[in-house]
Amino acid sequence: MNAIEFFSRHGSEIAEATLEHIWLVGATMLLSVAIGIPLGILVARRPWLSKPILGSANIAETIPSLALLGFLLPVPWLGARADRITITALTLYALLPIIRNTAAGITGVDPAVREAARGMGLTSRQILLKVELPLSISTILAGVRVATVLTIGVATIAAAVGAGGLGEFIFRGLAMVNNQLILAGAIPAAALALTADFLLSLLERRLRPAR
């Protein structure tokens, strides 16, 4: 059975797994952006918080992904559903690049610009929303892009706890020593990662402020 035949026969199954995968990644990215950007702002505004926050995100990054899923299993509410555990674990991984880039973007704003904004009588909220965030948006998006690509790859382990996604094929293929099955998971995952990378880099370029 050649590859084309395989893909056409399992087309609907692959499509379904791809959608599951996109849902896991999408939910993770929404959550990690919602948590990561405020944390990044906090790191930029309160340098003494930088060590504890970045340190924790760094540690999360170093826990092997399968082990992290294992650790989360006994947690109440979270452990009750496979997708909850998966999204939580993936979010913990995605946070670091988002926090780091948000903080770097904001601290990288020209001090003269910030000084002028303060001197003109902008409140610190207005400085954040009208000056710092717009000027660091492309740096922040670069972090989101790295996190998204990373998440698409790591999300394949969701299958280990039964949360579905393209990892299903990979795990099944490994168990059955069937390369075609592994590729049925790996190729769409790679395609997803490349597409997300491309689309986000377009957006990043569009939003980059003129210099």
């Binding site: 003269a112 002028a116 303060r118 003109m120 009588g121 000056v131 000027l135």
Partner: peptide
């Protein structure tokens, strides 16, 4: 109030600090 005071006073600095965006 610092915000009120600063809006009462124009401020020009050397690098101008114009908002690039």
């Amino acid at each position: 109030d610092p915000i009120e005071l600063r809006r009462h006073i124009g401020y020009v600095i050397q690098e101008t600090g114009l908002f690039p965006h």
